[in-house]
Amino acid sequence: MQPVLEWQIASVTAIRAETPQTKSFTLALPQWMAHQPGQHYDVRLTAPDGYQTERSYSVASEPERVGVIELTVERIADGEVSSYLHDVVIVGDKLEVRGPVGGYFVWGIELGGPLMLIGGGSGVVPLMAMMRHRDACKSTIPTRLLYSSRTPEDVIYQNELNELARKDRMLEVIFTFTRQAPAGWSGYKRRIDPAMLSDVLGPLGGSARVYVCGPTLLVESVADGLVEMGLPQARIRTERFGPTGK
């Protein structure tokens, strides 16, 4: 079903700091409709002089959370929209949004698995929607998240990810740190590379569906690595994020 794509005015009902650079905004939508995990909304700002600018943000929340969407936004230095959202917006403010959009980078339990999610930086956001949806449906589809961050303080949803992995035998979360790892860390300490992909994806088997999201360079190198491993192109879906979130 295609949504009627009109702008609507959402209300900010909650703001939560996830990391020093990211915040999650809960928006109540007058015309909410269930989105597919992986989809995004466009956010539009209008200045008094009529100047407008737009950005797209992936929905972090699961469609089972009715009536609201959660957008997790990374604050980009000199980012026109992200700095407005971080520095100005307060609970009670209104934001003009349009969506949900996107039909390619989406996953739902009806698509099955095994499921391999690979994210870098704020690329984890749409993958989180997929995992929260999977959890809400109490799915047992074997799933792994490989999440690349610069430092431990950059990890978004740290506690929630630990909790999801702890209570679910069929879900595994693997972190890698590219700049600085936690003290005593015995896990991966480098950019995602073919050897890491092989180790992490191996146990899921060759029929896994893979979703890769993050900065362009990460997405390209991971997608190339997966194809070189013999994964069919049709099982790989990608979404590139820019330095401005999207």
Binding site: T46, Y51, T53, D93, K94, L95, E96
Partner: peptide
């Protein structure tokens, strides 16, 4: 709608 506190460009 005007976004509260958004001054856009100058």
């Amino acid at each position: 709608m005007i976004s509260r506190g958004f001054s856009g460009r100058r």
